[in-house]
Amino acid sequence: MWKYLLRRSAYALFTVWVISLISFAVIQLPPGDYVSDLVNDLRAQAGEVSPEWEQRMREIYGFDDPFLVQYFKWMRNILTKGQFGYSFYYKRDAVEMITERLPMSFALSFLSTMFVWVVALPIGFYSAVHKYSIADYFASFMGFFGMAIPNFLLALIVLYLTYKYMGQAVIGLFSAEYASAAWSWGKLLDLMKHVWVPMVIIGISSTAGLIRTMRANLLDELNKPYVETARAKGLSETRLLIKYPLRHALNPFVSTLGWMLPSLVSGETIVSMVLNLPTSGPILYRALIQQDQYVAAGFILMLSTLTVVGTFISDLLLAWVDPRIRLQQ
């Protein structure tokens, strides 16, 4: 058990490290940097920028250092000081922006995960037990439906429908009066009123996928000999289904978090852009467009870390629910 934990956590750390390398490298790829963008802008407006000034700016930002040196400095600052660098575009500390936005992303991803589980588990279970019933066909069809509709399109449609029938599009996570207010019960309540729309939109395609996974897993389990053993004992059908196949099917269910989280975070990013939610999506988008490299790298790193941590937690859960994993060696 401890060996398993140790291996998993070492593995998660390694993954985060590789991701940090990738996210930093990706940000460095574009030709030019923030200074050249700035110079272009200044030239367009004022006309004249001296090459010396441009050079000095580069030195200040350290853009001329080799890649690894820049990466090393960046990582050192994150690890020792908790600093992600400076946003050129917003003229703010990147870490401030991250701490402002990331919890909301995290909360939204978490809520979507809960939504996906709460909806997909019972539907998948019912579909498998009542295989080829009308409800099963309906669930399958809705599953395909949910997988086929891109979440940003769904967000657009929701915008259109709410605008048309409620006179106002559902945008953002808060009503105007709470948007910049400090946290209070009222604000939390307001959040609850708004959050379910993005939660459903983000979760819908994963829900569809998970219903299908759940159904397939459970169908596999229903034919296993141990189910027959339980039936031959005289257990009632409901008790039997819950104690045996459902319990077995839950394991892959827990481990699906590994593929679900990346797609939920992706979904969260784009849906937040469309619905203009105060999460990391819109900021990341702008940072990418503006080559605001430290902000972009910081967000990608944190979002990816979020999924790695989520996957790690799902590994722990798996060990907790499945004795076969728990008792390995």
Binding site: I22, V26, L261, S263, S266, L303, S304
Partner: peptide, 8 residues
């Protein structure tokens, strides 16, 4: 696979 695709 553990990296969220869209940001990348």
């Amino acid at each position: 696979m553990s990296i969220p695709t869209l940001p990348v």
